[in-house]
Simulated scan of single mutants.
Amino acid sequence: MRFRGKIADIGCIQHFTRIIGTLSKLIKVCVLRITPSNWYFILSEKLVSGGVHIWCELPQGHFFDEYALEGVSEEANEIFLELAPENLTRALKTAQNAKWIKIKLTKKHSPCLTFEVDLPTLSSHSRTVVHDIPVTVIPRRHWEDYEEPEVPQFDVTIAMPQLKILKNVVDKMKNLSNYVILSANQNGEMKLMVETDMVSVSTHFRDLVNPVNKDRVPSSQSSDAPEPDPHQFAEARIDIRKFAQFLTGQQVNPTKVICNIAKKKVVHFFLLHDDVSLQYFMPVVSS
């Protein structure tokens, strides 16, 4: 197995850094899937036991100026690596003004993803910083554990309000309860509510957009399903701290954030920025 790539555009380096920074806020360990066309960062916890599922897709052509991959075989030209995004973030902290970054799969004492960062200097001499990030190679027999998650049929699809506003609301609500009820309808309305024995607090958002399924927004809604009442709310009870963590971690300033609710099953957040997409599946908690 071999991999090497080079990012030379400062804007791409900074965008790449923000994406990795977002992932490091959301997850401690994930799987990086490297293919000829894309990088995927994957977290696959068991939804039935309260875990979340994350699928982040980066087209390599959007970032890399040079890209060479030799996977485990000709038929399976891919590489799966387990790593800690926080280690990537530390390596990229030195690269904010870099002239280029080279990323290679190496083997030193153990497999590593090696970052070579070429930093600007006042002289003609180059200054290169090297970071060796330990990784674990995932055997091919386990690859099926990291397939793209199936998207259920949603009851409601709605564009979310500004994430900063949501974060401020949720940060206050999480002091009252461990759970928040997120509800929305097809009439552009969304509600957040926490309930305790002592108090019930809710925040309402109106005039939001219910997007038609285009522009790569995942959906499995049947085209021949009956039209639901647009004023009827679909609601989901979710872990408020995981929701707050999701809102706090965003550093990519997405151009589109879609919330899909499948009652009694899952809340699915879809973030899109340029060609980069992030799907975040949060399981519903029964009351």
Rank of each mutant, 00 (worst) to 15 (best):
Pro161Glu: 05
Gln221Glu: 14
Ser183Asn: 13
Lys167Arg: 15
Pro254Tyr: 10
Val199Cys: 12
Glu144Gly: 05
Val257Gly: 00
Phe154Ile: 01
Val212Gln: 13
Asp207Val: 04
Asp215His: 07
Ile240Pro: 03
Gln232His: 15
Ser223Arg: 07
Pro211Ser: 11
Pro152Ala: 00
Gln251Pro: 00
Thr157His: 03
His231Asn: 15
Val169Trp: 02
Asn187His: 15
Ile258His: 13
Ile158Asp: 02
Pro230Ser: 11
Val169Asn: 01
Met198Gly: 10
Pro226Tyr: 14
Lys191Ile: 03
Met160Ser: 12
Ala159Trp: 03
Asn210Gln: 08
Tyr146Cys: 02
Ala184Gln: 03
Pro152Ser: 03
Ala262Tyr: 05
Glu235Arg: 09
Glu148Cys: 11
Asn168Met: 12
Phe233Ala: 05
Gln245Tyr: 02
Glu144Cys: 07
Lys214His: 12
Val156Cys: 03
Val194Asn: 05
Gln251Ala: 11
Phe270Met: 00
Val209Met: 07
Val170Lys: 07
Val156Ser: 01
Val267Leu: 10
Ile238Glu: 01
Leu176Glu: 08
Ala234Tyr: 07
Asp239Tyr: 04
Phe233Asp: 11
Gln251Ser: 12
Ala234Gln: 06
His231Leu: 15
Leu176Tyr: 10
Glu147Ile: 05
Arg216Val: 08
Thr157Tyr: 03
Ala159Gln: 15
Leu163Phe: 10
Glu148His: 10
Val156Lys: 00
Ser183Thr: 12
Leu208Ile: 08
Ile261Cys: 00
His268Leu: 14
Ser200Arg: 13
Glu195Tyr: 03
Asp171Leu: 05
Thr196Val: 07
Val156Asn: 03
Gln186Arg: 15
Ser177His: 04
Lys242Trp: 11
Val151Glu: 07
Ile165Ser: 06
Ala225Asp: 12
Asn210Lys: 09
Glu195Lys: 08
Ala159Thr: 12
Ala244Lys: 13
Val194Gln: 05
Tyr179Val: 07
Arg206Asp: 10
Ile261Gly: 00
Val257Asn: 02
Gln162Ile: 03
Val257Pro: 00
Lys214Ser: 14
Val180Asp: 03
Leu247Ile: 04
Val267Gly: 00
Thr157Leu: 02
Pro230Val: 10
Ile238Pro: 00
Ile181Gly: 00
Pro211Asp: 15
Ser177Asn: 13
Lys174His: 09
Pro228Trp: 13
Pro230Tyr: 13
Thr203Gln: 08
Glu148Lys: 15
Met160Thr: 15
Val266Cys: 09
Arg206Asn: 11
Gly249Val: 05
Val201Phe: 03
Asp239Ser: 09
Pro218Ser: 04
Arg216Glu: 14
Ser223Gln: 13
Gln153Tyr: 04
Gln162Lys: 11
Asn213Ser: 05
Gln245Asp: 12
Val180Ile: 13
Asn253Cys: 06
Leu166Ala: 05
Gln153Ala: 05
Phe246Asp: 02
Lys265Gln: 11
Lys263His: 12
Lys164Gln: 14
Val217Met: 12
Val212Phe: 09
Pro226Val: 08
Pro149Ala: 11
Asn185Asp: 12
Leu208Ser: 04
Lys263Pro: 05
Ser223Phe: 04
